[in-house]
């Protein structure tokens, strides 16, 4: 963003539309409160007093219709997998997904067991992977910062079209 020191028009900011849109998108990532397993407790910790997600403009939303970001904190098994897909489909574009913890990345300690889906990316597309079992709140915050960088690079066309 460039702040112009213009004598007749003080306080005017010129910025490409793409950057303005991306800036507003990345600065208010409302995430879906969808606690699945152990990592959900660390996700709660990140939202609570000490780590405080609010300073990234992140507030949890209970409804997928109001959320931009889905943090998948936990093991995906056969029974929950289609629910995750439904929730993802209910979110409005643009939407992003963070796979939090080993289980959501590839099954983690439960990799290859019966009933376990080895990674949430087999069900929905994932933007950022945060490793750990469970990842520390700092790690999750780092993942969010990486996602913000990614959002800042995105174009204005719809994400579905960009993927195709």
């Amino acid at each position: 963003m460039g702040l112009i020191d213009h004598e007749e028009l003080p306080g005017i900011v010129t910025v490409p539309l793409r950057r303005l849109v991306n800036w507003s998108r990345k600065s208010s990532l409302w995430y879906l409160l969808f606690g699945i397993a152990c990592c959900a407790i660390e996700m709660m910790a990140t939202g609570a007093s000490r780590y405080d997600f609010d300073r990234f403009g992140m507030i949890f939303r209970a409804s997928p219709r109001q959320s931009d970001l889905m943090i998948v904190p936990g093991t995906i098994n056969e029974k929950i997998a289609d629910r995750v897909k439904v929730l993802y489909d209910q979110m409005a574009e643009p939407r992003w997904v963070i796979a939090m913890g080993g289980c959501a990345i590839n099954g983690g300690p439960y990799h290859g067991e019966y009933n376990i889906v080895d990674g949430v990316d087999r069900v929905i597309p994932v933007d950022v992977y945060v490793p750990g079992c469970p990842p520390r709140p700092e790690a999750l915050m780092h993942g969010v910062l990486l996602l913000q960088e990614k959002i800042a690079r995105e174009g204005l066309e719809s994400r579905a079209a960009a993927r195709a």
């Binding site: 699945i36 397993a37 407790i41 093991t75 098994n77 029974k79 300690p109 439960y110 067991e113 009933n115």
Partner: peptide
């Protein structure tokens, strides 16, 4: 059943000391 993670079956397949991390993950609080 939305979080069934095969704990009891895993416990039969792993060495005893390898089961301890899985017991953590049953009641993670």
């Amino acid at each position: 059943g939305y979080l069934h993670r095969c704990f009891e079956k895993i416990a039969e397949k792993r060495k005893l000391f390898q089961v301890i991390p899985y017991t953590d993950r049953t009641d993670y609080l």
